[in-house]
């Protein structure tokens, strides 16, 4: 089957500094792909190249059709939370504006927006201002905006940043459900354990693609240490994988003197240590 999106030899940089090099990546129909890597690895830049918000310096990016429907859930911190819109108004933004030239939504458009909000279990919040929602609810509103456009490919940039563990689990649950229904999903995440538990194909990135494959093959101490330039512990229990970075190699013990019993190190010792 032809890939929906194909990147061949893509490089991209800001000024003279290349943040991405030699990227070869295929996104096939029905895939659920997670991009992981340290901050500055080029994850968001890669998403923006795929979304044609950026132009590659080298290589090419091909879509299977020019009219491939791709929607995007941006990082939560890029949103202006004081903007005067309700959850429903945000969702309605995702509709194809060429279908309705009037400024107000049609009844069937509002119905569709409500159905998607209901499906994501936030239908009762549709009239709320976006600032008045919790982090997890806000993420679901932006997910609803992406879904109302009925996308073939859903792209999400760090969908679990700034949300609690339960909300993050819920978001990955919804993405898994959508993927099982046939939607192609590409996301970036810093949450390696969520990616290990939910994402069937992981691309480990640090300016180049370090490795890609199922999480069982990618989440190894060698690959993660290579990508993150850190020291990782990977624990496996049945089908589950737990990733944890080892404490700093020097530890605090060598930097600071032993603490006073039951409290912080005293000021003199601290000054000597510094």
């Amino acid at each position: 089957m032809d890939p929906l999106i194909e990147l061949r030899g893509v490089a991209f940089g800001y000024g003279s500094f290349n943040v991405l090099d030699e990227i070869d990546l295929h996104l096939h129909p029905g895939q659920f792909v997670g991009l992981v890597g340290p901050s500055g690895a080029g994850k968001t830049s890669l998403l923006k190249l795929i979304l044609t918000l950026l132009t590659p310096g080298e290589g090419e990016i091909q879509r299977v059709r020019p009219d491939l429907r791709i929607t995007y859930v941006p990082q939560i911190e890029t949103v202006d939370w004081s903007f005067p819109v309700t959850a429903e108004e945000v969702v309605l933004m995702g509709l194809d504006h060429r279908q309705n030239i009037w400024p107000w939504p049609r009844a069937r458009e509002r119905k569709r927006a409500r159905e998607i909000l209901e499906r994501l279990e936030i239908g009762h919040l549709s009239e709320r201002h976006i600032r008045d929602l919790s982090g997890g609810q806000q993420q679901r509103v932006f997910l609803a905006r992406a879904l109302v456009a009925d996308p073939e490919v859903l792209v999400l940039d760090e969908p679990t940043t700034g949300v609690d563990v339960r909300s993050a689990e819920n978001i990955f649950h919804w993405l898994t459900v959508l993927n099982r229904e046939g939607m192609t999903i590409l996301l970036t995440t810093h949450d390696l354990n969520m990616a290990a538990a939910h994402v069937p194909w992981v691309v480990c990135l640090n300016r180049r693609i370090v490795a890609q494959g199922p999480p069982q093959e990618i989440f190894t101490e060698e690959i993660l240490s290579d990508a993150y330039k850190g020291n990782f512990i990977v624990l496996r229990q049945d089908d589950m994988i737990f990733v944890q970075q080892r404490p700093h190699p020097h530890g605090l013990k060598e930097v600071l003197p032993d603490p006073v019993e039951g409290g912080l190190p005293n000021h003199d010792n601290l000054e000597k240590a510094v």
């Binding site: 995007y72 890029t78 202006d80 945000v90 194809d96």
Partner: peptide, 19 residues
């Protein structure tokens, strides 16, 4: 109205949605 609203809210994302 809708295009201006989306562009004002988030120009970059609006572009992805075909505005």
């Amino acid at each position: 109205y809708k295009q201006l609203l989306f562009t004002t809210f988030n120009t970059e994302v609006a572009q992805v949605y075909g505005i």
